[in-house]
Design a protein around this nucleic acid. Structure first.
Lengths: 272, 272
DNA sequence: CGCCAGGTTGAAAATTGTCAACACGTGTGG
DNA sequence: CCACACGTGTTGACAATTTTCAACCTGGCG
């Protein structure tokens, strides 16, 4: 399980933060000094359980994991898939409660950052703390979109929508090649994420295949016509703060003023 | 719409925070000095829209509101109902994005606190900032439970579960009397919250009524046998951090260390 | 008085789930 | 090297749940 302890430059942390905001040289230096551990986890292994405290935050570099919860009779809801570039345990570290399970899907290699070391970084560079808290919130906000999907959309829309969602998230970190990506997930798990039976997932995928909207070979999914797929999905570009960059004035103002012991600039008034 | 501007002692804010954590005298003093405005909003009025920044956080004292999103064709998902005691706009103020609409259901009377004034409070009493951020996260975590409900449970379980959920939340703020509460919501809205058609909500309620588990007269809902209703709902006491008190070491540590090296005394460690 | 929103109900239709069978590839043990 | 088990994907037939459509009822209110 664990491996390669000790300290090393935290390039994964730098990459993660750089994707969210433009970093100053000073900030880059501070991030590079954060001690990290390279961690590898085998496939299909519980990463974090219910109620457990999280000694470190994991930044996924390769591999997939997922959040889920089981009902007493075995029904399972998958809340979200965690992809390369995602952080695991951030909300738990911050808020101290964990109401879901997390398990790996494939082999996951990640960078582990101890919580106190992250604190130390934020202390030196409060803006980075704001960025990461903001990112945790953004990650959580996906739950709301999924609630909308499962509550209001039919099977075709749901499957199409989730494929587009995964496509876009993977594309943002360079994990899409030639319009295709690897989805290391059985149809049963897809069903558990979408609130559908695996049989119906299968049928829906067949329909999408016959429409020429999805080409599946093994676990490779190719989406030849994203625009058409988005149309099927009823994809709403405005709804999600998807590609939105960090400008979290609120949390940033909060962090900044806490750190300076003085209230700095007021949050700007909203327009539109 | 708005009314009674000016400053006054923020008893609503005190009550809100006192429900979440034990307050020291010093903290109470600081809270009491926060300027607030009493606000009243008529029923069925948009409170906050998409993308709008929030000039103030609202603490609901009486009345109901709800978060929702509309699809292009008019389908509506209600994400959550906001009850007396809930805060509105906290996440938006913190994270600077709003991917949902909020509207009143009934007349809502609330205490409005300007964001800069809250910042000033947190600056003086960082632990209170941690408490409120933590509360915002806890509020968001309900979305996950609703996702579980809608994804995995059938109509009976969903309706029963939501009634129990509302009952418990209302009871926590003293809004249940004689095992009954007022649900100022049409069956259509209930359906939009549960991912069901209003006709099916109606039929499911009829079934629950005939089981003697729910007594409805107008918008008064009485739950004579909560235990049985919880059984129907597959209610899982362990799943939700429902009655959990604040001890968020993570966010608290973060806030504390950010503020360290500064003026005032350290926030006390949480005792659970 | 009559309108209208919301609740209620039945019947029919659509969607989705369940059951059962088979296909296919991979890995393992004989 | 083959046979077999096993996990996963695929499909058809059928069942269950849920939605849709269309009434009708009720109470509040202009």
């Amino acid at each position: 399980m664990a491996d390669s302890a000790g300290r090393s430059a935290s390039t994964a942390l730098t990459r993660k933060l750089a994707r969210l905001t433009a970093l100053s040289d000073e900030e880059r230096d501070a991030i590079a000094r954060v001690p990290v551990r390279q961690r590898n986890f085998p496939a299909e292994r519980t990463l974090m359980g219910w109620g457990s405290l999280v000694p470190e935050v994991l930044l996924v570099e390769a591999g997939w994991a997922f959040n889920y919860w089981l009902l007493a009779d075995g029904r399972r809801q998958i809340f979200d898939f965690l992809l390369p570039g995602d952080a695991i345990g951030l909300r738990t570290a911050l808020f101290g409660f964990r109401d879901r399970m997390t398990a790996t899907l494939t082999l996951v290699s990640a960078t582990g950052v101890a919580w106190p070391d992250l604190i130390a970084l934020f202390e030196e560079q409060p803006r980075l703390g704001a960025v990461l808290v903001w990112e945790a919130a953004r990650q959580e906000s996906r739950l709301q979109r999924y609630l909308l999907d499962i509550g209001q959309r039919d099977a075709r829309e749901r499957v199409a929508h989730r494929l587009v969602d995964l496509y876009e998230r993977l594309a943002a970190t360079g994990n899409v090649r030639g319009g295709a990506f690897t989805l290391p997930v059985t149809q049963e798990m897809l069903g558990d994420a979408l609130g559908l039976s695996f049989v119906h997932v299968n049928r829906t995928l067949r329909w999408l295949r016959r429409q020429g909207l999805v080409v599946v070979s093994g676990r490779r999914y190719e989406l030849p016509d994203i625009a058409a797929l988005k149309r099927i999905a009823g994809y709403d570009e405005t709804a999600a703060p998807r590609a939105q960059a960090f400008d979290g004035e609120g949390i940033q103002t909060l962090f900044a003023s806490l750190f300076r012991g003085q209230s700095s600039g007021m949050p700007e008034r909203g327009e539109r």
